[in-house]
């Protein structure tokens, strides 16, 4: 019972914190993207354009809710909700400090991979339910991409698991706090594993340079082609939540999570998460979109073999006692 209350309380807190970070994240992305292109970004709405995300959301909620005539109503309505749930669900097992964690699952890594992998379902529900050729094509691309990049993602996540001997994310973070951050030492499986994790996470959340599922020049807007107003808002949010939670996961698995000197754990965790978040936007606004075949080639001929090799190296590291 105590655990339930704890989970509900912290879960709500973390979810609220994430969603409010998202609003600022949208503002930050537009400002940052603007500066990268030597523009200003939002300036007119509110001081320094700070109120821009709120104006966007207020506007989107007022828009007409269009459901295409031949759409699969159930799937069409369910998809955006599922998308937010799946992307927020991952946050449940991520420790933001030694005590701030919604649910300290023993198999946290499995939960993350499972719930993260479920994103395929809302994606395809949206594509199929819209009854729109662009949406369906986008959904099919997204699934091909998610399923493929799931493999290097799992391999990369397994490296910290093997090194620390724990499937619980708070266990992994605690291990790192005791010894070293995995991105720092052992550097050979650690840092490359983080790079693979980072790329696979970008691909899983359909971000540039892996955003072929919603390539505007080819597919109008991919799976969200038929979504208006509030439902589109949910998809929009889910994308940002996915990115933010992915950053938090990367920080926890490879950069020691809440571990850091001088300041409380929460500060460090937030700092690391936001750094990765910024890194994602930096990549997003710098690179071009991959072609579908290049995307698959990168996954299957580079990331997956390297991932397997890294897993073997980390197994060898543990076996031959290089642990400490």
């Amino acid at each position: 019972m105590n655990e339930l209350v704890h989970g509900a309380l912290y879960g709500t807190l973390i979810a609220t914190a994430i969603l409010s970070t998202i609003a600022m994240g949208i503002w930050f992305e537009r400002k940052f993207a603007g500066r990268m292109q030597q523009r200003l970004g939002p300036t007119i709405v509110g001081p320094a354009g700070l109120l821009q995300p709120f104006a966007d959301i207020i506007k989107l909620l007022q828009k007409e809710d269009i459901v295409p005539r031949d759409a699969d109503r159930g799937l069409f309505d369910l998809a955006p909700i599922l998308a937010v749930v799946c992307s927020l669900g991952v946050a449940a097992v991520i420790p933001f400090s030694p005590s701030i964690i919604a649910s300290d699952l023993d198999v946290g890594v499995l939960w993350v991979l499972g719930i993260g992998g479920l994103m395929v379902i809302p994606t395809f529900a949206a594509g199929w339910g819209s009854n729109n050729k662009f949406a369906l094509l986008g959904a099919m691309r997204a699934i091909a991409q998610s399923v493929s990049y799931g493999v290097p993602l799992v391999l990369a996540v397994l490296v910290p698991v093997v090194l620390s001997g724990s499937l619980s994310i708070s266990g992994i973070v605690a291990w790192q706090a005791q010894h070293h951050w995995f991105a720092v030492w052992p550097i050979v499986p650690g840092l490359p594993a983080f790079v693979i994790f980072f790329l696979a996470m970008l691909a899983e959340s359909n971000r540039i340079p892996f955003d072929i599922p919603e390539a505007e020049s080819e597919l109008v807007a991919g799976i969200t082609t038929e979504y208006t107003g509030a439902k589109f808002t949910l998809f929009y949010m889910a994308e940002y939540v996915h990115t933010l939670v992915g950053s938090a996961l990367g920080a926890a698995l490879f950069f020691g999570g809440w571990d850091g000197p001088f300041a409380p754990g929460l500060h460090w965790m937030v700092l690391k998460t936001l750094t990765l978040f910024v890194l994602i936007y930096w990549v997003r606004w710098s690179l071009l979109r991959f072609r579908a075949d290049q995307l698959m080639r990168l996954c299957w001929t580079w990331l997956t073999p390297i991932g397997v090799a890294l897993l073997l190296v980390s197994a060898a590291w543990v076996t031959f006692g290089g642990t400490n």
């Binding site: 940052f32 603007g34 500066r35 990268m36 292109q37 030597q38 523009r39 200003l40 300036t43 930096w282 990549v283 606004w285 710098s286 690179l287 071009l288």
Partner: peptide
């Protein structure tokens, strides 16, 4: 090329924006 692109955007981000506030 990736490194070049990332460098270019980051350098631009710290330049003066060319926008003329209409």
């Amino acid at each position: 090329d990736t490194a070049k692109a990332l460098r270019t955007t980051m350098v631009n981000a710290f330049r003066e924006p060319v926008t003329q506030e209409f």
